[in-house]
Simulated assay, not measured.
Amino acid sequence: MNWMDDGGFSLDAFNTVDGRPMARMVFRTSTGQYYIILTKTEVQRIRRECNRILKEMEADK
C-alpha cells in the first residue's frame, strides 16, 4: 500500500456553520498531522493545476 491508501492523505467536504462549502485536506506524516482548510474556489484551483500536470505527464509518454 502507498501513503494515500494507508490514510496518509484525505480530503473531505463539509459545510461551515453558516452553510458555506469547504474542504479539509489532511496530510499525516511521521512528524504529525497537517490540516488545511480550503474554500470551494481553492479546491477548483487545485483541480485545474492537477489537470494541467496530468496533461503534461500524458504528453511526455
Rank of each mutant, 00 (worst) to 15 (best):
R47V: 11
C50Y: 10
N15V: 13
Q44I: 00
C50W: 03
R28I: 02
R52C: 02
I37H: 04
I46K: 01
N15H: 12
S30K: 12
N2R: 05
A59C: 00
M22D: 02
R24Y: 00
L11D: 07
L54V: 11
F14K: 12
I36R: 08
E58V: 09
T31W: 04
A59G: 01
G8E: 03
T31E: 15
S10D: 14
I53Q: 08
R28H: 05
E49Q: 15
F9L: 14
D18A: 07
E58C: 02
C50N: 06
N15E: 12
Y34G: 07
R24S: 06
M1F: 10
T31I: 15
N51C: 11
K55M: 07
R52T: 13
C50S: 05
R45H: 07
V17R: 12
I37E: 08
I53P: 01
R47L: 14
V43L: 08
F14T: 13
L54W: 02
D18R: 08
M4W: 14
L38V: 01
R48N: 11
A59T: 08
S10N: 13
I37L: 05
E49M: 09
M25E: 02
D60P: 01
D5T: 15
R52M: 10
I53W: 06
L38W: 02
F14S: 12
R48K: 13
F27S: 05
T31Y: 09
N2P: 04
E42L: 02
L54M: 10
F27H: 07
D60L: 12
F27Q: 08
E58M: 06
D18W: 01
F27I: 07
R52W: 07
Y35H: 11
Y34C: 10
E56K: 12
T31H: 11
N2T: 15
W3P: 03
Q44T: 03
D18E: 15
W3M: 13
S30L: 08
P21S: 06
R47E: 08
R52V: 01
S10M: 08
I36S: 03
L38N: 00
R52I: 04
L54P: 00
